[in-house]
C-alpha cells in the first residue's frame, strides 16, 4: 500500500493503494468515476480511455504509480469542454451510442483528436479510433457525428471565431489549457 496523489479532472486526489493497481480500477472503485469502463483489460477495446496530459491512453494498462505527476482527465472531467460538448450533441443527434458501453471511451479519444487536428489528416479523424471497438453501431453514426462537429467547428471559425461554452468548468478547461489551444487551432478541412 502506498499513498499516492493524483491530479484527476483538475483536482488533487489522494489514494492509498498498491502502486501497481491499474488506473482504471482506482478511478472506478476508489473514486467512483465509473464513466471509465472496462471491456477487456488487454488494451484492445478502448472503453477505459482517459487523457494523460491531454493524450488518450488506456487506463487498464496504466499502473497508478506511473501517472503520479500527470494530469488525468476522465470522461466526467471533459464535460464543459467545447469540443466535447459539440461532439456530445452530435452523437446524441446521430445516434452514436446504442448500448453505450464503448461510448465514454470513444468520446474521450475523439475529444483529444479534435483538439489536435494537426495529427489527423482532414476527414481521417476516425483513424484516431483504431483502438476503440464498438459492437453495436457499426461506426456509421459515430462517423456522422465527427463530420457534423468538424463541419460545425469550421463554420464557427470562419464566422464567429472559436466556440466557447459558458458552462465550461474551470477544471475541465484549465487542466489542459485547451481554451487557449482552441483559440489558436484551426481545424483543417
Amino acid at each position: 500500500m502506498n499513498n499516492l496523489s493524483l491530479s484527476i479532472n483538475g483536482q488533487l486526489q489522494r489514494v492509498a493503494c498498491d502502486p501497481l493497481t491499474p488506473l482504471a480500477d482506482v478511478l472506478r472503485d476508489g473514486l467512483r468515476l465509473t464513466g471509465t469502463k472496462i471491456g477487456c483489460r488487454t488494451g484492445e477495446c478502448g472503453a477505459c480511455t482517459v487523457l494523460l496530459d491531454g493524450e488518450p491512453v488506456l487506463s487498464c494498462l496504466l499502473p497508478v504509480a506511473a501517472v503520479q505527476d500527470a494530469k488525468i482527465q476522465t470522461v466526467e472531467g471533459l464535460a464543459g469542454d467545447p469540443r466535447f460538448e459539440a461532439l456530445a450533441s452530435a452523437m446524441d443527434a446521430c445516434g452514436g451510442a446504442q448500448c453505450g458501453y464503448c461510448t465514454p471511451g470513444i468520446m474521450v479519444t475523439l475529444t483529444a483528436a479534435l483538439r489536435q487536428p494537426d495529427r489527423f489528416a482532414p476527414g481521417e479523424y476516425e483513424a484516431a479510433l483504431k483502438n476503440n471497438l464498438c459492437r453495436c453501431t457499426g461506426y456509421r453514426a459515430i462517423r456522422e457525428a465527427i463530420a457534423q462537429v468538424t463541419a460545425g467547428l469550421q463554420s464557427q471559425e470562419m464566422t464567429a471565431g472559436p466556440a466557447r461554452n459558458s458552462t465550461a468548468t474551470s477544471e475541465g478547461a484549465e487542466a489542459l489549457g485547451q481554451a487557449d489551444a482552441l483559440g489558436k487551432v484551426a481545424i483543417p478541412r
Binding site: 476522465t74 453505450g100 465514454p104 468520446m107
Partner: peptide, 18 residues
C-alpha cells in the same frame, strides 16, 4: 431524462458500476 446523453457522458450505471 435523456438516456443517450447519459451514455455519452459516462453517467449510465451498468451492473459493474453498481
Amino acid at each position: 431524462h435523456n438516456d443517450l446523453d447519459d451514455k455519452i457522458r459516462g453517467r449510465t450505471k451498468y451492473v459493474a458500476d453498481l
